[in-house]
Amino acid sequence: MEEKLIYKKPDSLNELKTHYCPGCGHGIVHKLIAEVMDELEIREESIVVAPVGCSVLIYDYLNCDGIESAHGRAPAVATGVKRVHPDKIVISYQGDGDLLAIGAGETIHAANRGENITVIFVNNAIYGMTGGQMAPTTMPEQITKTTPYGRNTDDVGFPIRACELVNTLVAPFYIERTSVHDVKHIIKTKKAIKKALLNQKEGKGYSFVEVLSTCNVGWGVSPIKANKWVETAMIPYYPLGVFREEKEKV
């Protein structure tokens, strides 16, 4: 019987023991990026900008050049790299605290310049690395270390919808929100990441993919319950879909 290879580890992913908690969505998103890098044959021209947060070590997982950034500054660092190497693929991988709290300014302005970069935004509604504090995307009533009585929207406002925010700008080329809570959505997420990286390769401009993800440890639930919570609590507030697929005409 002839053996048929139906799955292999992407070349763009390093053989490494994961540091992510069981059930965490980061590993899935890392793998999707690696698969897309293989498929588009861009591994050797890619530079990944690592944020501060759980995914701070992303450059250890991806088998390509990597550069660190200070907390929230990934879009600025990515801008600097891209301006030196306009023909290379620059990926800014960020979490919710990084992208929407401390780095909100950098996020808006890189998008507003229409930098020809790809931003992968993993939204798990919490600060994972520091032990589960409130993020800008933490849901109303959600309990975290710094919202022990639940997020009080009268006091700290409502979760920020990143795609909608970025979609108010003229320059971005592609904006989509996806999720990795089940297989169907993981496949959709891969398609979105592929589109986003292809856009950059073709010089089309700023692409933004928000991925709803889980932090079951931070949320204090089982992985299965966490996936369910994305579906029942997050998606209704953060609707999935394509927000934009070309530059807005002014």
Binding site: S69, A76, V77, R83, H85, I108, H109
Partner: peptide, 16 residues
């Protein structure tokens, strides 16, 4: 957009 962004763009460009 800020001094902070500027020095981090320098970080990126220097790293590149």
């Amino acid at each position: 957009e800020s001094e902070i962004a500027a020095i981090n763009m320098v970080f990126g460009a220097s790293g590149a």
